[in-house]
Amino acid sequence: MNGLNSPLRKEAVLDAVASAIRTIEAERAGLDLLVHTLAGPTGLAFHRCVAAVLAGKGRVIVTGIGKSGHVGRKIAATLASTGTPAYFVHPGEASHGDLGMIQTDDVILALSWSGETAELAPVVAYATRFSVALYAVTSDEGSALARAADGAMILPKAAEACPNGLAPTTSTTMQMALGDALAVALLEARGFTAREFGLLHPGGRLGAGLKLARELMHGGEALPLVRKGTTIAEAIVPMSAKRFGCVVVVDESGRLAGLFTDGDLRRALAAKSLHGVVDSVMTKAPRTIAPDTLAAEAVEMMQSGSITVLVVVEDERPVGLLHLHDLLRVGVV
Rank of each mutant, 00 (worst) to 15 (best):
G204T: 10
V137L: 14
L134P: 03
R129C: 05
A158H: 03
A167P: 05
M174E: 06
A181Q: 13
L187Y: 10
I154Q: 01
L145R: 00
L186F: 04
L187W: 13
S171V: 01
Q175D: 12
T169E: 04
L178Q: 13
G209P: 14
E160N: 02
M174L: 06
V132P: 14
T193K: 10
A133N: 01
L178N: 11
F130I: 07
A194T: 01
T169C: 05
G209D: 09
L187T: 13
A181Y: 00
G179W: 04
R205S: 09
A159I: 09
M176R: 03
L155Y: 07
G204D: 06
V137N: 11
L200H: 14
L199W: 12
I154P: 01
T193W: 04
T170P: 12
A144P: 11
G209V: 01
Y135G: 00
L155Q: 10
A181P: 02
F192S: 05
G165C: 04
L145A: 04
A158C: 07
A149I: 08
M176S: 09
P163C: 08
A136E: 09
A148I: 00
M176H: 01
A194M: 14
Y135M: 14
M153L: 15
D180L: 07
D140E: 15
Q175L: 06
A146P: 08
L155M: 08
D180Q: 02
A148K: 14
A167E: 12
R195F: 00
I154T: 07
T173K: 09
A133E: 13
D150Y: 09
A177M: 13
L166V: 06
E141P: 01
R205T: 07
E196L: 05
C162A: 10
T169Y: 04
A183D: 12
A167G: 00
A148V: 10
R147T: 12
M153H: 08
L134E: 08
R205P: 12
A133V: 13
L134A: 03
F197G: 13
G179H: 03
A189M: 05
L200K: 15
F130L: 15
G179C: 04
S139K: 06
E188Q: 14
V132Q: 00
T193A: 04
A183L: 04
G151L: 09
L187I: 07
L186D: 06
P163Q: 09
E188I: 02
A183M: 12
A181H: 10
R129K: 14
I154V: 15
R129S: 12
A177V: 13
G204F: 10
P202H: 01
A181I: 11
L199T: 01
A148M: 07
R205H: 08
L206I: 13
L187F: 12
P168F: 11
